[in-house]
Deep mutational scan, measured.
Amino acid sequence: CHSECLGNCSQPDDPTKCVACRNFYLDGRCVETCPPPYYHFQDWRCVNFSFCQDLHHKCKNSRRQGCHQYVIHNNKCIPECPSGYTMNSSNLLCTPCLGPCPKVCHLLEGEKTIDSVTSAQELRGCTVINGSLIINIRGGNNLAAELEANLGLIEEISGYLKIRRSYALVSLSFFRKLRLIRGETLEIGNYSFYALDNQNLRQLWDWSKHNLTITQGKLFFHYNPKLCLSEIHKMEEVSGTKGRQERNDIALKTNGDQASCENELLKFSYIRTSFDKILLRWEPYWPPDFRDLLGFMLFYKEAPYQNVTEFDGQDACGSNSWTVVDIDPPLRSNDPKSQNHPGWLMRGLKPWTQYAIFVKTLVTFSDERRTYGAKSDIIYVQTDATNPSVPLDPISVSNSSSQIILKWKPPSDPNGNITHYLVFWERQAEDSELFELDYCLKGLKLPSRTWSPPFESEDSQKHNQSEYEDSAGECCSCPKTDSQILKELEESSFRKTFEDYLHNVVFVPRKT
């Protein structure tokens, strides 16, 4: 048989008469490798580009789960590009990614509803959504962080984005990388972005840091009482949809009607710091009717980097990364020049730590249904340095008659930039024990000054392991946590139920 035959053949030295091919099969003959313009397919066939392209389009058009959109890589027609490569849609070739590779997620039936953290986790790592997304989240724990972890990498949506009755959302900033909504599939009414009845939605994105392009379709905003109209108009300008909307697409009466839409800028007039305090004062603000001013709200939190936005980490279910302080308005003076500047002394802060701070007014709604208010920009203030805590785990070892090696770990709280350490030492008198000992005694162990690591005695271990207080009263049991108490109650309830079950099964009433 021919060298490319495997198993047997019907005619000697003829690659077209093989029972099976050793390498690849091409047009009725066995070959060692697939010549151009053919590609290896499933490690035994040679196919042309049209064959591989037909497989790709067949799966793409069917949208069946589990099928493969075949691509070409290293002269092979394979189910998908290997790690580190992405497909070129024009020629199906796998090309190296520039940075992290995109991950295209194809949605069944063309859309997916995100109504819980669990459903959001199914899209973790996706960068391109081939379909439409509907966000409908009523509640949950730590929602802002969970949504950002699972949806934060999405850069492109081919269909539309719909935010509907998501009472738990305060902001859409968890879509931190969303840059493009194509609108290839539109919501009824030709809408590519749809926001309806979101009672706590206050911000779409921080438009000073976020760009969003909507290729096709219109915007729809109705019944978002805490979303200011200025935020919607800003989205029109940034996304390129200005002029597409009709009169009733953006409701003037049901958007922002319960919001404090600040239209003035508060400026800080005085800032002073110490290692654990920050004193702030800002310019006074009074609405047209000074009785509408209820006070100020001061927001602050630790910020290692200057990239904080107002609604980071917030949701309507209680999660809030900001510390909020309510401040009463100052006494009002008739003389504008003698107006008191409101302020606040922030206490209990960490030394040498940068804080993000902003302040906003708290006002009631005027009778004319106009909203007044003022808010400052987010500023960054760093507390002063102070003395560091003591170095940890000092170790001293003498390696000769004239040297001592000293080692330690950095302090747990540096409280500033540590530039150097101060080492103090003092000579001590020799131990009298060394002169009084009889060095001729056998088995004498000389006193040693070398360091030995501390260890816990058996008594201390027994005390720590004991669940009861000892007789001397030195140790006591740790208080039980809520989960331990709940577990004990469940076990007790189970024992009672099981005992009742045994009584009912074992003891049967005697027939009379």
Rank of each mutant, 00 (worst) to 15 (best):
D393T: 11
S173E: 11
N263C: 08
N198S: 04
S321A: 11
E283H: 07
V104N: 02
V363S: 06
R165S: 15
I379M: 14
D367T: 10
H106M: 12
N255E: 03
Q245P: 12
D206P: 10
G373H: 02
L279E: 15
T273E: 05
Y160V: 03
A385V: 03
D115P: 03
L143M: 15
T213H: 15
W344G: 15
L265Y: 08
G343I: 15
T241Q: 13
N136V: 12
Y305T: 10
I137T: 13
L123E: 01
I378P: 02
R165L: 04
K218V: 14
Y305M: 14
S376F: 00
K360L: 04
I232P: 03
R179I: 12
C317R: 00
F175Q: 00
L266K: 00
T185S: 12
P342T: 06
W207K: 03
S376N: 01
D206V: 08
E122I: 03
I214E: 00
H106D: 04
Q258T: 13
K267Q: 11
L143W: 15
C126L: 00
W282H: 00
C261E: 05
P288N: 11
G152S: 03
H341C: 15
T309W: 10
C261H: 03
D197T: 12
S116D: 14
S389T: 13
D326V: 02
N263M: 04
F174S: 06
Y160N: 07
I135Q: 00
D289W: 02
L331K: 11
L252G: 14
H106S: 08
S119R: 04
G313S: 07
K234A: 05
G189R: 04
K103E: 10
V381M: 08
D377V: 10
G373T: 08
P330T: 05
I378K: 03
N198C: 02
T118W: 07
A259M: 06
W286S: 07
N263K: 10
R369T: 10
T254R: 07
L151H: 01
S171C: 05
M346V: 04
D335W: 13
P394M: 09
L147V: 04
I135N: 00
Q306E: 05
L293H: 06
L180D: 13
I163Y: 01
